[in-house]
Design a protein around this nucleic acid. Sequence first.
DNA 1: GGGTATTTGTCCGTATGTATT
DNA 2: AAATACATACGGACAAATACC
Lengths: 283, 283
Amino acid sequence: MPEPIYRRIYEDLRRQIENGELRPGAQLRTEIELRDHYEASRNTVRDAIKLLITRGLVETRPGQGTFVVKKMEPFVTTLTGPPDSSSGEGDTYKKEVGELRRPSNTSPEVQIHMAGSEPATDELQLSEGTTVVSRHQQCFIDDTPWSLQTSFYPMSLVERGARRLIQAGDIKGGTVAYLKEALGIKQAGYHEAITVRAPDDVESAFFKLAEDGGVSIIETRRTAFDEQGTPVRLTVSVYPADRNQFAVNVGKVPPEIEDPSSISRPPGARSDASTATETERNG
Amino acid sequence: MPEPIYRRIYEDLRRQIENGELRPGAQLRTEIELRDHYEASRNTVRDAIKLLITRGLVETRPGQGTFVVKKMEPFVTTLTGPPDSSSGEGDTYKKEVGELRRPSNTSPEVQIHMAGSEPATDELQLSEGTTVVSRHQQCFIDDTPWSLQTSFYPMSLVERGARRLIQAGDIKGGTVAYLKEALGIKQAGYHEAITVRAPDDVESAFFKLAEDGGVSIIETRRTAFDEQGTPVRLTVSVYPADRNQFAVNVGKVPPEIEDPSSISRPPGARSDASTATETERNG
DNA sequence: GGGTATTTGTCCGTATGTATT
DNA sequence: AAATACATACGGACAAATACC
């Protein structure tokens, strides 16, 4: 068996999708029709469709059929910006979205944690037994769930006078401005770690992701520091990878490039690196 | 059928993996044993295992069995750095990594493209009919395939005297230094777009990813500009998400945080060094 | 609202091929 | 060579979701 049947079917369907015979949104023939067409069993056809799903090319809708995926216009988050501009509570996010899309978010929910029992201990350099405040938000764009954000603050900030950190609800002007006003803490910079992983059950439900895997989660952990190098906040954000992009600007960059609203790269373009590899293998 | 059988089996096995009953590297019971244990058919057990595979929790080896995956130590790439970072930095990083990890890469392969027929046209602001040089590399760490990189340069740079761009093989000192030396072009900054998507077949093969999906690909597109704001290079890199992390530093950040070699990441032991693969380091 | 046809989802049993030990 | 374990492939049955009349 030089090449499995389900893989030959997969490659034939993929070719039809990639050269435009099957356009985004189009419906594939039913599993029964494909079974007859390829003279294979329905289960073998289904194996080919599963491969197409894991490659992100099609989606199945029970009772309806199998469809070529329509990709959403991705939302671009710029990770680099003035070091004191990241509020961790959606202000930069609102600003970047601009006029065309309608962002909204839930009112922050506040919780108190013991350090060591939650995942901010390392980044905030806390010792055992100290407490941490978390403020959690759900963010939407055009009523589509877009991200989940949780900011962690050492409880010592509250004890020093930043009482509003433990009150639920928005802090007008953002927490960066509030901390500066209340305690004179100026945010001097931040470090952000970016990872990609599979969604957990909560994320899968909130973002309405298919259970069968396809979509990954992008997690960013932004640790903000004051001018003495003391960590003052950790913001953990999770984004579904199918509707988000990120941008980084370093040095002098033309303004029309730096501003993400002017660039939109429609997805579907294939990886340059891999096409190069393919050519190399063939040549 | 409130919850499918294969899903209940999946949940049970996942629980055993996540709470340590099944440790990384351990072998699961065979499909036959699992069939008897759960009183289901072997195909149903296999459906559960497929879910575990797409979640990145196990891997199957024909003739051997099914094993809990050992997570590799992630490699951290810092996206922010001096905008004109030349090759000297790359060498430093290489040395720093070199103790524990051995980075290597293939010699760059050169191709000539017509603009419009390949995907660098937008970023390099090329008109129809102009030509582009691409330089492609495969990068490894400890003999593990780590990334694929392709840099695109307008052919006009070659015509102005940067002949070595169209010669295969390393450019000693890096291309940034070479362009400055040969043409007086100083790299003033860059813009980087980061996306996550499913792997294609070439990437799946090169990175040895499971065919059944699970692992996503991180694609970065770095457009570099000279001091006049003219794009001089586009570098497209693809990384498998299961062995890569990224970092961004903005403003004033404590050195022990900015340099990841001194901090320990949550999942594993040490994650040392930010990356710079030796040649074609495009700061 | 109800009923029916269509389409995908789940589950089973079986047979055979391929890789590893 | 033989045994073991996963991979592929088939056919059948019923359930669940959806669309349409």
